[in-house]
Design a binder for these strands. Structure first.
Lengths: 360, 360
DNA sequence: CTCGGTTACTAACGCGCGTTACTTCGAGCG
DNA sequence: CGCTCGAAGTAACGCGCGTTAGTAACCGAG
């Protein structure tokens, strides 16, 4: 301000922050070398810059509206501070939460998260190549690490290019068993759900199952059986009904259970629905029969699909899938990997917390 | 392959695509200058490279697993091919769809979409600064254009830095009236909804309203009145009930309407719910009274919140908010702006299509 | 044989920045 | 006074690439 020499660069002084202000412009304005500016802006430890010139430089930065060029910085320093995540953003109410968790954590670490879409992951469709392209694009940006997130817990095949930088899988695991992964602890989740029902006094519990082969079903059911076993109970095979993972599927499965047993005579007093969408359908089946939730029949879900669980009437008690936590943990794991630290655990499992609402 | 000179760069020949393969490496491997490689890879028109060396270069690219460095390329060419979008990814089942639309379109245009989070937009909370930081971060990446997306249709204040590059608002509009925006055509949407009810023979229609002051409510109600007027009907003020934009709010509003009019005596035969969450609550109110949807009372929603609308029983007929289309249009608009073309329309309105399911 | 005009390239600069090696200057010390 | 040493800064290189100006070889016309 005091002795700022007007330069050509200040063509539009009323609009600071106009594009193309470089460190050289700042240096000229402050009357120092470009190196000095660089030292100040990167807060170098052992650089000796007097307090006076330091503030003069910072003033010039402010006045000109200088903004560093991330690309140039990455080029010169050979590090980008970027991570990449590829995920099916499409059908995915879940993927969003993973992204949010990852992005918030990245933001805390002063890193930037690049997001690339991959439409259907293992699609047979025409865009099988999209996923490879997504990885490719991210690597062109010279990301320092990669995250791969699936919308439901399952084994996946990841493009080979993922081997070029540290890569962590979220909500899925490497079918080839190489890459580290972060998954929900389905077993513990199933256990916590059923323990909650037991504590509420229920002894006869119906289960509305998913496709029995997917990891989620296997784990949750295992946890369910564990909890029952500890209470000296067993799961009645007649009370497990599988259905499509939709509200309609849940409705039909619930009907099947409720219609098999008249009131009192062996009818379960609680239903463990392996996901919230099915619980939504179960609600209808129960209400149709004039039964009250939770007085006549308690219902517990799984997933905590907010839009459903928090808006059903009564609000659904459920076990939450820890998407945000997994996203955050993914970034943390990536950070330690890119820092050169060894892989701590090949597969990290994250707890699924119980969310008590009003259906138990 | 034939006469490839082994170089130090081929340290790990079994792992092509290892990091740090540069154009110079490719040039050396192909026995040409770096310039020649650059010409081939960027498909220059008036560069004369013989077909022979051309294929030799491409072979070297393949063999070494060369991958361009996007940052360096942006630095040299002074253009980045990147757009940025800042949005509240948080609470936002909607923002996701906007992002998807934008990202798919960007992908088609061979551009990359950088996503920055902005937690609560006009939050009073501690992270008011986050939004500015998001813009700042994106500008540091030298994005060529910016998108700003809100989760519900409303006026917004955008940080001044948005003026430095072309900026388009999506699902919101500039409170200062400067920036171009893309919003849903709420009025036409309300009209289409009510026309659909009229066509189904309904003449007495109840409206479950949102906060009457927000743009969505204003527009949708206006469209509703238009449709009625064209049929020679009027909206009975007694049949408009506002509530909180939740399932509970919808439940209470529906109760109020249904309890005021006993069957036959002026009870509406259809409910127009201004969003799907409220429709969800209205379903419960209707079912509780032993009425059937749509036989006794038809219900139509707005928003097409997939997780609700497609899973309610019966599935909800609703008017969709065109998030993906708005996202895509945003990128298209940005493309024309960055190409130097003038602003076509200050505010572009996108149609809200009717989705017929089973509740009317 | 010379000369203009192509074809097929290459040398060299600069994008904006981080970083290393070097210079300059004044204070302190024997 | 001569010397060293730290403080305060600067010149210059290179990151990987796009791009312009230029060069060398060849070819046909005069």
């Amino acid at each position: 301000m005091a002795n700022s020499t007007p330069t050509a660069a200040e063509a539009t002084p009323t609009a600071p922050g106009h594009r193309g202000v470089t460190m050289a412009d700042v240096a000229k304005a402050a009357g120092v070398s470009r190196t000095a500016v660089s030292f100040v802006l990167s807060n170098r430890e052992n650089a000796s810059i007097s307090e006076e010139t330091r503030t003069r430089i910072l003033e010039a930065v402010q006045a000109l509206g200088y903004r560093p060029n991330a690309g140039a910085r990455a080029l010169a320093s050979q590090r980008s501070d970027w991570y990449g995540i590829v995920t099916e953003i499409v059908t995915a109410p879940f993927a969003v939460d993973i992204i949010k968790g990852a992005q918030d954590q990245a933001w805390l670490d002063r890193r930037f998260l690049l997001i690339a879409p991959s439409d259907q992951a293992d699609a047979v469709g025409p865009n099988k190549g999209m996923e490879d392209a997504a990885f490719e694009k991210l690597l062109e940006q010279r990301v320092e690490g990669l995250l791969y997130a699936a919308t439901f817990h399952r084994p996946v095949h990841v493009p080979k290019s993922a081997n070029e930088v540290p890569t962590v899988l979220i909500n899925c695991f490497d079918a080839d068993g190489k890459l580290p992964s972060i998954v929900p602890d389905e077993r513990a989740g199933g256990r916590v759900a059923v323990e909650h029902l037991l504590q509420a006094g229920h002894k006869r519990i119906g289960v509305i199952n998913l496709d029995p082969n997917i990891p989620a079903a296997v784990g949750r059911l295992e946890g369910c059986r564990e909890a029952l076993a500890e209470a000296g109970l067993e799961l009645d095979p007649d009370l497990i009904v599988a259905g499509y993972a939709t509200a309609d599927g849940g409705y039909e499965a619930a009907c099947q259970i409720l219609d098999k047993y008249p009131a009192g005579e062996g009818r379960p007093t609680a239903l463990f629905c392996l996901n919230d969408r099915m619980a939504m359908g179960a609600y209808d089946a129960i209400k149709e029969r004039g039964l009250a939730i939770p007085q006549d029949i308690a219902v517990i879900g799984f997933d905590n699909q907010e839009l459903i669980a928090a808006y059903l009437r009564p609000k659904l008690t459920t076990v939450a899938l820890p998407f945000e936590e997994m996203g955050a943990l993914g970034v943390q794991t990536l950070a330690s990997l890119t820092a050169g630290q060894p892989i701590i655990a090949h597969q990290q499992m994250v707890d699924c917390p119980l969310l008590e609402r009003y259906s138990v």
